[in-house]
Amino acid sequence: MEYNDIRALLGKYWACESTEEEEEALRVFYAGHEGALPADLQEAAPLFRYFHDCSDVPEMPELFTDRPAPWDEPPAIVRPIWQNWMKYAAAVLVAGGLLYSADSFRDKQSDELAFRDTYSDPKLAYEQTQRALQLLSKNLNRGKTQMEKIGYFSEATEKVQGKN
């Protein structure tokens, strides 16, 4: 390319009127040119050589090597049908266990309620118990007196029958 063409392209470049193709032509010219340049063309040489060098970007590394890419759908897991019965059996067992537990809990609650409702006032309960035991004791003593009388009568009967 003639130097005059380069001068014209540079003028357009600095004025931001150059096309992408013209700018690429400048990069290629400066990157490939060897030897001395006219003084007015030297000014832009480092810039276009820099742009040319910058086009060498390191090779693109592989992405998502450390984590899965979000758009990678997980593969669908197809299980044989016979594997599903365990799921339902487990559900039935859990349900049965829950029912049994609830039933046991209810029975326990009702037993506790039966014992708890026998008295409301401990002092009154004590007095009532004392009265009941005194009545029982009195009746037992009465029964003992009657048994002693029967004992005397039995002894007398044996004497009369001549066992002596």
């Binding site: 470049y13 600095w14 004025a15 931001c16 030297q42 000014e43 832009a44 480092p46 810039l47």
Partner: peptide
């Protein structure tokens, strides 16, 4: 875009001229 690019190139050019 054109204004910013023009100013950017102008500033770089001035620095290159100083360098040269």
């Amino acid at each position: 875009v054109k204004i910013n690019l023009h100013r950017a190139r102008k500033q770089v050019r001035e620095q290159l001229q100083n360098l040269q």
